[in-house]
Design a protein around this nucleic acid. Structure first.
Length: 193
DNA sequence: CTCTCGATTAGCT
DNA sequence: GCTAATCGAGAGA
């Protein structure tokens, strides 16, 4: 079992640094039936207040996004498209809206549990999208604001060091409305060779 | 109060 | 590649 990622890693004020940092790390979520874990392979960087694709754009605080303005090290979970929960890791000091969207995870532990939750879906597609990640891990709005260094959700060092050549950088997905921010290269995918 | 649309997914053509 | 599914947040009246 790897060392748990401590609070310091979440307090960066650079969302790109955060998004790259969490690639290759191991995410775990525990409930009364056990633990599901997996390696994060796709992330996107959001924030701060200038990012038109970020829910905290212009420092606009609303009931939904207030978690995003809290200090890093907690989960920002929100409901989207009427049917999906999306998981983010909040970054930075209090007052600055920054986060990493967790878009893809390779499930490594608790597979029986995920097989049940993702019934009928091939393993390859269990968690290869942000809404699929939350379904595989059983995350919902009750996890909004939960610590990422706690007993429910946590992240560990996996021992993996990803060669820079295996990290693909692209524009973020689904943010076409964000004008010039829609095209910025803030999505990071580990394409394992 | 009303209306629009979204940090998506799965299934079909 | 195309689109139905599905509903709450947020903005404006």
């Amino acid at each position: 079992m790897g060392e748990k990622v401590s609070l310091d890693a979440y307090l960066t004020n650079n969302p790109i640094e955060g998004a790259l940092f969490f690639l290759g790390k191991k995410l775990s979520v525990k409930d009364d039936k056990g633990v599901v874990s997996g390696i994060i392979f796709e992330t996107e960087a959001y924030g701060g207040a200038e990012d038109k694709a970020c829910h905290g754009y212009g420092n606009r605080v609303t009931p939904r996004n207030k978690t995003l303005f809290q200090r890093g090290g907690i989960a920002y979970v929100y409901f989207c498209y009427g049917m999906h929960y999306l998981l983010n890791f909040v970054l930075g000091p209090e007052g600055i809206p920054m986060a990493v969207l967790i878009r893809g995870v390779w499930i490594t532990e608790g597979k029986e549990r995920v097989r049940e939750r993702r019934k009928g879906i091939p393993e390859k597609h269990w968690a290869d999208g942000p809404g699929k990640v939350t379904r595989s891990f059983g995350i919902n709005d009750s996890d909004n604001g939960v610590s990422l260094i706690g007993d429910r959700i946590w992240v560990e060092y996996s021992g993996i060091v990803i060669p820079e050549t295996e990290i693909k950088t692209t524009a973020r997905i689904g943010v076409d409305y964000a004008e010039e921010w829609a095209k910025k290269p803030l999505r990071f995918v580990w394409e394992k060779k």
